[in-house]
Design a protein around this nucleic acid. Structure first.
Lengths: 135, 135
DNA sequence: CTGTATCCTTAGGGATACTG
DNA sequence: CAGTATCCCTAAGGATACAG
């Protein structure tokens, strides 16, 4: 029995996706990993949406269990963990880009995808290349 | 004040998207409209995930308020409403396709996107064409 | 600073009776 | 059949104190 099977509502791919990632926080952590290059507990905590400490700890655990991220000790600071995206997590990128594209088209104040990436001081191709190489 | 602004957590596009569609049901209704060509209350109710009547009514209302769908009376049955996707709703298709693609790659038992579309007895291009024309 | 544990509140959602 | 209205309950999430 796979972990997510317990809450599986139907075998539909979209339903399965929602069962796995359809909460209010998981995708924001993935976002931080992909776009903001955050990798530590404190960095995730500092994001604009103000996740609380227990929720963050819980989601990091779940994301690790489900194979979206890996956890390792920071060699330069033994009391700190580094979280990294797996291929499974990184492969959410195309979907996230579509999400960003949609939002910029339909939600006022969201800005364009280009602006979004510019704010991150990188561009899309660079980002993808960089992330692929880091695996 | 736009409706979703009340629960807006941050101006990040992904966060905004989640504030709008990040519940367990909205996207499944969009899925039914796009992929299963459902358009009535009863058809949505009959989907495999067993949404309850009050939740369905609530989501249909929200989706209409937010401009994802339009509601009109069935000319052939005055006591029945027909729900149709707007362009805003249809434009979620690319994202949904990425979602399906990701799921088929990483979740056991999800099947391939081709199988998913085959089950719907259509193919991707046909589907998109058909939907665009219906607007 | 990196988490963990606990307490508490609320919104989301299920069941179901009911109305036109 | 197409919804509405209620009742209820659990799980998700917030606040915050605490530990290494």
């Amino acid at each position: 029995m796979t972990p997510h099977q317990s809450s599986r509502r139907s075998p539909c791919p979209i339903s399965l996706w929602l069962d796995l990632l359809g909460d209010k926080w998981s995708l924001l952590i993935i976002r931080d990993l992909i776009f903001a290059h955050k990798k530590t507990y404190g960095e995730f905590l500092s994001s604009a949406e103000n996740i609380s400490t227990n929720i963050l700890a819980d989601r990091l655990k779940k994301l690790e269990t489900e194979g979206f991220i890996t956890k390792s000790v920071d060699p330069e600071n033994k009391s700190k963990n580094i979280y990294c995206l797996s291929a499974k997590g990184l492969d959410l990128l195309p979907m996230l880009l579509e999400m960003i594209s949609w939002t910029s088209k339909y939600i006022k104040g969201a800005g364009t995808p280009k602006e979004f990436l510019k704010r991150l001081e990188t561009d899309r191709e660079d980002l993808i290349k960089q992330l692929k190489e880091s695996l």
